[in-house]
């Protein structure tokens, strides 16, 4: 009876994770097969022999590396700026218990990304910034700043106040107490905030699809625009999809503990 329960439990775990496993295995299968096998019916499940030709084709034919570089610049800048702005803000809000400021941040979480885009699109056009990466970095702050502030509020609230107060009593300025006492203690929080901000910036599609020009596309936009419009066949499309999402999947596997902590706390998500 107990063994039966154990088997039942193992089956339910398997049932929960199999949709994810099957999906990514099928993506891999599409990416590693030649075109004949991809168009075969019944489908060929195991690539035989597996080929890297699809990956090579994606890298050769399109400006894939250019788009990857755009993505790297946008996501790193938006995450870096958000840390510079958001970590002190999280500290300030947590210490002064300004729940209204926190609520204001939540508005960003609730608003559909598209609603920022109409005015920002017009402003960027007016400023002549379209065609550069600046509009993308700026709009990605809409995603990254709230994530960083939200995660950091939680972390700074959890820190014991005594250490900082001791520093203040000893004559340190608030800035010194923040810089030398609170900040080092909050390092795990900063890691969580960095990872989440980076992932949701990297994944963002909606801002790029409106604001990016031919040369400034980020990877998600490029995969959607270039590949689908050129009617590329399934193999290269799956290979490109895999390459776009691979950094995020690898980061999730490495930093799953931090990601779970961050998401459990606030349920943050951008866009």
């Amino acid at each position: 009876m107990k063994a039966l329960g154990k088997i039942g439990f193992a089956l339910s775990v398997f049932a929960l994770i199999s949709p994810a496993i099957l999906f990514f295995l099928w993506t891999l299968s599409l990416a590693l097969k030649n075109e004949v096998d991809n168009m075969a019916f019944p489908p060929v499940f195991i690539p035989n022999p597996p080929t890297l030709a699809n990956f090579a084709q994606v890298l050769e034919k399109n400006n894939f590396l250019q788009y990857a570089w755009n993505s790297v610049i946008v996501s790193f800048s938006a995450t870096g700026l958000a840390l510079l702005l958001g970590v002190p803000a999280g500290f300030g809000i947590a210490k002064s218990k300004a729940s209204r400021a926190a609520a204001l941040i939540m508005i960003a979480r609730v608003t559909p990304g598209l609603s920022y885009l109409i005015p920002l699109f017009l402003i960027f056009q007016w400023l002549g910034l379209t065609g550069t990466l600046a509009p993308l970095v700026i709009t990605h702050l809409v995603i990254t700043v709230p994530i960083v502030v939200w995660v950091m509020i939680g972390f700074f609230e959890g820190l014991p106040a005594e250490l900082e107060e001791a520093a203040l009593v000893d004559g340190a300025t608030i800035w010194q107490a923040f810089r030398h006492v609170a900040l080092p203690l909050a390092r795990p929080g900063i890691t969580v905030a960095t990872i989440l901000a980076f992932i949701f910036s990297w994944n963002n599609f909606i801002f790029g699809v409106v604001l990016a020009g031919r040369e400034t596309r980020t990877l998600p936009v490029a995969v959607y625009n270039v590949l689908t419009f050129e009617q590329v066949s399934w193999g290269p499309l799956a290979a490109a999809a895999l390459m776009v999402t691979a950094p995020v999947l690898i980061l999730t596997l490495i930093a799953q503990k931090e990601i779970v902590t961050g998401l459990t706390a606030g349920g943050v998500k951008g866009g």
Binding site: N203, F205, Y224, L237, L242, T245
Partner: peptide
């Protein structure tokens, strides 16, 4: 593994 679908890039996922 269970949380991979929510972390994966939605556009890439949608195409597949």
């Amino acid at each position: 593994i269970f949380i991979l679908p929510m972390m994966a890039t939605p556009v890439a996922v949608g195409l597949v």
